[in-house]
């Protein structure tokens, strides 16, 4: 293992330890179970067999939890280092700022993906047991795209952590992600009748803001629609990589110029 790989591995391990020692994931997982278990036990009007609503709620919980975990984990990679002055021993080690940023990103990404992977595994086993179909192609695509989503959100939150306070970063990322989920796809239509300035602004947001709705295959998974073409999945993942790369480059530029 090269020293650079060791450095990245150390940073990843730190983020993972933090996530699992802070017990956030366990709290989210337990909350999810507390919501789903009573719902699964209910047999409305004595008619059993309906499970799609459980899948939908489970998927929604997974998406919300994964987004919150990714945003919060990535958002607290750097601010506490400055606040607790641990950034100094970090920077004093023979590690470049670029490696440090890459390691912090990778750590937050691995932590979020591992937590989401656990959620998906639990969901896959639950859905498989109910429906008798184990991990169909569309489910695997949904997970792949969810990983793309986490990549993008992690990079976005990491960038935000250099620009805003931790709370403001959490809010801004939440608004951007939630807003784009809700209206990202329809922004040009929604502003069609508005003045030119608003239309231009909407167009700018439409072009530049992260299209997180690309990564959402919940409807296909819950309602058993067929899988998406793999070339489309690849294109969306490429979008995530390029967008995240841009965010990280910008974050790196800010970090390198930042006086500690």
């Amino acid at each position: 293992m090269t020293p650079c790989c060791r450095q990245l591995a150390a940073l990843c391990a730190l983020s993972l330890r933090e996530l699992y020692r802070r017990k956030d994931v366990w709290v989210v997982f337990t909350l999810g179970l507390l919501i789903l278990a009573p719902l699964a036990a209910i047999k409305p009007y004595g008619i059993g067999g309906g499970s799609r609503h459980l899948f939908e709620i489970a998927q929604l919980l997974i998406w919300i939890s994964a987004a919150v975990i990714a945003i919060s984990v990535a958002g607290r990679q750097f601010p506490p280092e400055f606040e607790h002055r641990t950034i100094y021993p970090l920077l004093a080690k023979p590690v470049s700022r670029t490696t440090l940023l890459a390691g912090k990103f990778l750590g937050a990404w691995v932590a979020s993906v591992s937590a989401t992977g656990c959620f998906y595994l639990a969901y896959g086993l639950f859905a498989g047991a109910k429906m008798g179909i184990w991990f169909p192609a569309v489910f695997c695509q949904a997970f792949a795209l969810h990983v793309g989503f986490l990549t993008l959100v992690t990079a976005l939150s990491l960038l935000g952590s250099f620009c805003f306070t931790p709370t403001a970063n959490l809010t801004v990322c939440g608004v951007v992600v939630g807003g784009m989920f809700a209206i990202g796809q329809r922004l040009p239509e929604m502003t069609a009748g508005q003045p030119a300035v608003i239309r231009a602004l909407a167009k700018l947001i439409y072009v530049a803001a992260p299209h997180v709705e690309f990564f959402d295959l919940r409807r296909r998974v819950v309602h058993e629609w067929g899988p998406v073409g793999w070339q489309v999945v690849a294109a969306v993942l490429l979008y995530a990589v390029v967008y995240s790369g841009a965010c990280l480059l910008l974050a790196g530029w800010i970090f390198r110029r930042r006086k500690c």
Partner: peptide
């Protein structure tokens, strides 16, 4: 060694040294 650094609260000393050792390659 910085002045009054509050190291990662969720690690023990062995883990802290393992982390910094990794950073040193």
């Amino acid at each position: 060694m910085p002045e009054t650094a509050y190291y990662y609260r969720y690690l023990n000393l062995r883990e802290l040294l393992r982390f910094y050792g990794g950073l040193c390659g």
